[in-house]
Simulated assay, not measured.
Amino acid sequence: MIEIETLNSSTFYLNKDQTHPGRCILAFNAHKNELFQLSTDELHLFMDDVALAAKAIQDAFQPQKINYAIYGDIVSHLHFHIVPKYINGADWGDAFTNNPEIKKELLESQYNELIRKIKVQLNQEGVAK
């Protein structure tokens, strides 16, 4: 993962696998494993961060849908997968494949361009530094 920005309660990362262009992960900053372990205030802040991150992805890449997932079987730290989906793209109409056999990795300059597009959107929301 490549760090994009620290938000109110979480850190926003670009996923190295870009099978779904714009795929990101949002990790809660404090160590928690489950949503129910969050206080009401923490939960509200985290869900606000999820919505903000998803909006930035939507505005930057214009996917037809965004999928959200919380797993944690392997990485036992609370995080959301935020996965843009595109008609005729990978996994359209199905749940996204979290760990595909063949991953789409990019050049550093391509990752930087994706991050730049997301930060432009965060900046418009008054978030990016």
Results as ranks from 00 to 15, higher is better:
residue 66 I to Y: 11
residue 15 N to W: 03
residue 33 N to Q: 15
residue 84 P to H: 09
residue 79 H to S: 10
residue 100 P to E: 10
residue 42 E to D: 13
residue 90 A to I: 00
residue 99 N to T: 11
residue 113 E to N: 05
residue 51 A to Q: 15
residue 79 H to N: 09
residue 111 Y to E: 12
residue 93 G to Q: 10
residue 78 L to H: 13
residue 108 E to Q: 15
residue 17 D to K: 01
residue 86 Y to W: 00
residue 56 A to M: 05
residue 32 K to H: 09
residue 75 V to W: 13
residue 29 N to S: 14
residue 48 D to G: 00
residue 83 V to Y: 12
residue 70 I to A: 09
residue 24 C to D: 06
residue 86 Y to T: 00
residue 16 K to N: 08
residue 108 E to P: 02
residue 78 L to R: 14
residue 19 T to L: 14
residue 109 S to W: 02
residue 88 N to K: 01
residue 25 I to A: 12
residue 105 E to Y: 13
residue 37 Q to E: 15
residue 20 H to S: 05
residue 95 A to H: 08
residue 22 G to A: 12
residue 94 D to R: 07
residue 106 L to R: 08
residue 21 P to G: 04
residue 45 L to S: 12
residue 112 N to V: 00
residue 51 A to H: 14
residue 29 N to Q: 15
residue 44 H to S: 11
residue 105 E to C: 03
residue 92 W to T: 02
residue 45 L to G: 03
residue 77 H to T: 13
residue 101 E to N: 06
residue 103 K to D: 04
residue 89 G to W: 01
residue 22 G to V: 08
residue 38 L to Y: 03
residue 119 K to E: 13
residue 19 T to W: 01
residue 87 I to H: 05
residue 63 P to E: 12
residue 27 A to D: 07
residue 105 E to H: 10
residue 40 T to M: 06
residue 32 K to F: 04
residue 55 K to N: 13
